Simulated assay, not measured.
Amino acid sequence: MKRVVVITGAGRGIGLATAKRFALAGDHLVLNYFDSREQLDAVIGIAQENGGDGIAVQADISDPEAATGVIRAAESRYGRVDVLVNNAGRLVSASVAETTWAQWKQMIDTNLGGTWACMQAVLPGMLARGEGRIINISSELGLIGFPTYAAYCASKGGVIALTKAVAKEVAPSGILVNSVAPGPIETDMLINDTIEYNDETREAVPLKRFGKPEEIAAMVEALAGPAGNYMVGQVISPNGGTAI
């Protein structure tokens, strides 16, 4: 049976790489995007070539009703959700003093609130079937903290704590919830961050390079497959050695 996979923030970066990975496996995809869907039709085409299917759903998941709508779109079309990948996120880099309340709220509402809303919407169906996988994309910065990223760190640290709490709650019912906490990955989010995207930061990584979205996608796919069968509430951090 083809898996039904929902991926939020699938329009670029880690979300797009993850979508391509599941497309190659021939899964049925529900690909959420906010403002970038240029490549999603091609990804859906890959899924169809491999025996799967897919749809793209525009939504700002910082809005709980919109986030719920993504899950309902998946259930309406395919009858269920087997795998939920909570990837959508926002980043603002600024000192605490310079971070506005609107910026703080934007990151908390998207990174943490969107994850919560999608999980809350998808769990009734998974609990009824007694199976399902949820993979939350957090960040190494939710583990270690970092100057000028306090709001982002708080939102991603919240995702990690949420992952652990929900994992304990639903594992007895057959739903496995885990998190992938990437280090610095070569995505638009990093490239547009003028504070962190530079040669000095790259050289500070023990591996002397930034990670690739495809490397994170591989970890997500592993957690969604047989390799993740005994993983409950874990935080896997592919970070090139920046957080050990």
Rank of each mutant, 00 (worst) to 15 (best):
R72Q: 15
I7C: 04
Y33M: 01
H28F: 07
M231Q: 12
R80M: 08
E214D: 13
T187N: 10
P182K: 09
D199F: 01
V170E: 03
E131F: 08
S179L: 08
I71Y: 00
A94Q: 09
R21F: 11
V166P: 08
A222D: 09
V220H: 04
V180A: 06
P172K: 02
A218W: 05
T187Q: 06
G233N: 12
L127D: 03
N50W: 09
L207C: 03
I71F: 00
N136A: 03
S62W: 03
D63M: 03
V5S: 00
M119Q: 13
Y149S: 14
A73S: 15
E214S: 13
N32E: 02
A165L: 04
S138P: 11
E131G: 08
N198H: 05
A243R: 02
L176Y: 10
D82Y: 01
N87T: 12
I135N: 08
G145K: 10
F34M: 08
V70G: 02
P172T: 07
T8M: 05
G174Q: 09
V5G: 00
G26D: 05
G183N: 11
P184E: 13
I175G: 10
G145Y: 11
T194Q: 13
L207H: 02
E65F: 03
N192Y: 02
D41L: 00
L176V: 12
K2A: 06
I175E: 06
A67R: 06
S62K: 07
Y78M: 01
T242Y: 02
D82H: 01
I191L: 14
K168L: 15
G113M: 09
L176F: 10
E49G: 12
A171R: 01
N178G: 12
S237R: 08
G11R: 03
Q58D: 04
Y197P: 06
K164E: 15
T163P: 14
S237G: 12
K156F: 11
I108L: 07
G233V: 14
P226F: 02
G114I: 11
E49M: 07
A243V: 14
G15W: 02
K156T: 14
D60H: 14
D41Q: 05
D41K: 02
I135K: 11
T148R: 07
G79S: 00
G9R: 05
G51Q: 12
E169F: 04
A67W: 01
V92I: 14
F22I: 07
D60R: 10
M119F: 03
N86W: 02
P226E: 12
S138A: 15
L141D: 13
G54W: 00
V81T: 10
A222W: 10
I71E: 00
R21S: 15
I55R: 04
